[in-house]
Each structure stands twice: as structure tokens, then as C-alpha cells.
Amino acid sequence: MHKADSPQPPQGPRGLDRRTLLAAGLGALGLNAVPAFAASPFPDRHITLVLPFPGGGMFDAVLRAMGNAAAQDLGQPVVLNHKPGAGGVSGTAGLAMMNEADGYTLSVMHNSVIRHPHITKVSWDPVKDFTYITGLASLTTGIAVAADAPWKSLEDLLADAKARPGQITWGNVGATSANRIYGQRLAKAAGVEINFIPYKGGAEQVAAVLGGHLHVYGDPGFGAMALSGKLRLLATFTDQRLPRWQQVPTVKELGHDLVIESPVGIVAPKGLDPAIALRLQNALQKATKDPDYQRLSAEYDLVPWLLDGAAYQQYATKQFVREKQMLDEIGFKPS
């Protein structure tokens, strides 16, 4: 008797058994599935833009208009997220400590962030720990008082400050902001003693001036209130008189060579894919041509300051050195 032959696997076309066919089929399926698992085009969800200031200020309106316009180009919403603290530093600094950069978290960058490591010890580097996306605009700092205040000019204000040492109060956003530092430099140059008061945001500071709790508003963002007649603009820390405020002198022309450069831009955490950085740069710069953005920028006296990411990075590198020199000039001692 012959032994029964061992069962053989069913044969498929051309003698291939089912296991071979199954393996081949799975291989083909895997190959065909690759595009489904490939990275989706950026962006495929909303982008968060961190505002390192409280809500209700100048940045709310301007950057919301920019975000809305950029969303049209990007195809995804740009959502504002307020993270105030440390004079507008904490929210931006948070990005420097993120482990990954994917383009979905951005922040407003301003020179107080670049200055901060000279003021106190931090674990991040403003030059190395951000991807610089684009410069946007330069802020205009003014010296403004309530419309019914007794001072009609900067000279009046400084004369009163000299007659009443330490009794004139002057507000700024952040105790170490450039506007605070330049206010101190002006007081020193004029030989007067002024009481500088830090505020969390511009809206809070304006409310204090209008309520009679603060004498001087010393920051950007005065435009709307000055146009409405609620604030009186005495001078600006600009190189030349502003087109909209030709009747208002600059601090420089009044004999004090003090001009504030206060640009803002957008950054991401370090290590962002250059292709994503370029996509964001182009969308955000395109958004600055939006009519709503331009109208609000003019309302708040913003000066266009469009830089590509590489140029913004170079500016930050040089500004980091300049900030140290400025602090040394006023004798600031880091904490």
C-alpha cells in the first residue's frame, strides 16, 4: 500500500499557492497605501498665534485682521491665544522651550523678548531658540495725557515734573520695556524725577489715564484714543513727525536725541522645516496687504517693517548686542 500523499496547498494561477499570492497581494497593498500615509500638505488644521499681552489692546485688532487674511491663503483658521506675563515676554518665551516645531504654534516677537536675557537669567536664547518667520511692523511710541490734563506740551509736563519731583506718574507695559527705558532716559536728560508705573497691557493703561489714576500714557497704541479726542498727544519717540500727527513734535526735535525702534514680527520654535517657514512667511506677508489690516495699522500708527525670515534673524542677532549696550548706558543691573 502506498502512503497517502501529504495534503498540498491549493494552487493558484501559474502554480502559485495561496500563501504566495496572499503575500504578494499584501505587498502590493502596502505599496499602494503609501500615499495615504504620506504627510498631508501644510497646514491641515488650525494655527495658533500666541499674543504675549492681555486681550483688548492694540494687538488684538491688528493681528486678528492679519490672521483672518492669512487664513484665506493657508486654508485653515489662525486662532489668537493670549498668554500675558513678564511684560509681554512669557508667552513668546514659551515657544523657545518647545521640543518640536511643526508650524502650528507661532508667536508675536518683539524686542523686549530679545532684551530679556540681559535683564534676568533664563534658560533660552532669543537668537538661537526661535525660527524667525517674518518682520511685520514697527510700533510708534507716544507721550499722551488725558484730553483735560493741564499740560499742553511736553515742555509743560517736564516743567511740572521738575517742580513736583516724583509726583508725575508715567505708565508703560512692562517694567523693562523699551518705552519704559526711554522714558527714564528722557527724565534723566531733562533732570526730572518721574514715577514710572508698569501695567499689564495698553488697554489697562489707557483706562487708568482716562480715569484719572495715571498722568501719562507712554506706549504705542495711542492713535484711536487720540483721534477720538480722549487723549492729547504731546510728543512721539520717532525720528520724524508722523504723517497723521504733523502738529505733534518728536522728542528728538525738542532737544532730546531719543528715538525708539520697536519692531514686531512672527516666530516659531527652533528647527522648523524651511519649506513650512517659507509657506508661513509668504502667507503672513500677503496678509499685510489686506485692507482691514492696513486700515487698523494706520489707526495705530504702525510703520511697515517687512523682513523675510533670514533678515529678521540677522536683525535679532544684532539687536541682542544693542540691547546690552542700551541697558549698560542707563546703568541697569540684571537680577
Rank of each mutant, 00 (worst) to 15 (best):
L157A: 13
W151I: 05
S177C: 11
D148A: 14
K162Q: 14
Q184S: 14
A137H: 08
S177A: 15
S177G: 13
I143D: 00
G183P: 01
Y182V: 11
A147F: 07
A161L: 11
G174N: 05
A147N: 05
D125A: 11
K128Y: 09
R185M: 15
V192F: 07
L154C: 07
P126G: 08
T140M: 12
S138R: 13
A146E: 02
N172W: 07
K121L: 12
S123T: 12
V192T: 09
I168E: 01
V127A: 12
T176W: 01
A149Q: 03
K128P: 01
S138V: 08
A144F: 04
L154F: 05
I143N: 01
I197P: 01
V122R: 02
A163N: 11
S177Y: 06
D125F: 14
L186V: 14
P150K: 15
A161D: 04
D129G: 04
D148R: 08
T176E: 05
A144P: 01
D156Y: 02
A163D: 10
D148N: 15
E155M: 09
G135N: 01
G135M: 02
E193K: 14
L139G: 07
I181G: 00
S123F: 05
I168M: 13
G171T: 12
G135F: 00
G166I: 13
F130A: 10
A137Q: 05
W151E: 04
L158D: 06
K128R: 15
V192H: 02
K152F: 00
R185I: 10
P150C: 12
G171L: 09
T134R: 03
S153W: 06
S177V: 12
V145W: 01
L154R: 06
T134L: 12
A144M: 10
V127D: 04
A175D: 04
K128T: 08
V122L: 07
G183L: 05
A144N: 08
L136D: 06
W124P: 02
K188N: 13
S177N: 13
T169W: 07
Q167N: 10
R180N: 14
W151A: 07
P126E: 06
N172T: 15
G135T: 03
R180T: 13
V122Q: 00
L186R: 01
T140V: 15
G135P: 00
A149L: 01
I143K: 00
G183V: 12
D160P: 03
D129S: 04
L186F: 14
A161Q: 03
G191L: 11
S138A: 15
K188G: 07
T140G: 10
T140F: 08
Q184R: 15
T131P: 00
R180W: 13
A178M: 13
A187H: 02
V127F: 00
V145N: 07
A187P: 00
L139V: 01
D160R: 10
I181Y: 04
L157C: 09
V173H: 00
A190M: 11
A161P: 02
N179Y: 06
I143W: 00
A189K: 12
T140N: 12
A149Y: 02
S177D: 13
E193M: 09
I197L: 07
P150L: 10
I197S: 06
A159S: 15
P165K: 09
R180C: 11
L157E: 05
V145R: 00
F196D: 08
G174Y: 04
Y132R: 13
A146T: 02
F196G: 10
A147I: 04
I197D: 05
T169K: 07
G174W: 02
Y132T: 09
T141H: 09
V192S: 11
